[in-house]
């Protein structure tokens, strides 16, 4: 490692705040770009399955006999 200690790696001679901010923001955006379509896919599949099911007849409301 180029740094003497973990603290030095975090501090980076005063530039740590800039460096770590960019890496953190990049990580968040990358994760969002990857996770969002996965969530979307899951809800879409649920929706398609629901639409495919024949409409349920509510058994509590029967035609008066």
């Amino acid at each position: 490692m180029r740094f003497d200690s973990f603290d030095a790696l975090v501090y980076m001679d005063g530039h740590g705040i800039y460096v770590w901010t960019t890496y953190l923001v990049a990580l968040i955006i990358f994760l969002m770009l990857a996770i969002y379509p996965m969530l979307q896919k899951r809800s879409l599949l649920k929706k398609i399955k629901r639409q495919n099911r024949p409409a349920k007849v509510n058994s509590r409301f029967r035609e008066p006999t």
Partner: peptide, 11 residues
């Protein structure tokens, strides 16, 4: 530039 140049790896 010191350590701030490490931003290049994202930029």
């Amino acid at each position: 530039q010191g350590n701030s140049f490490r931003i290049i790896y994202i930029h």
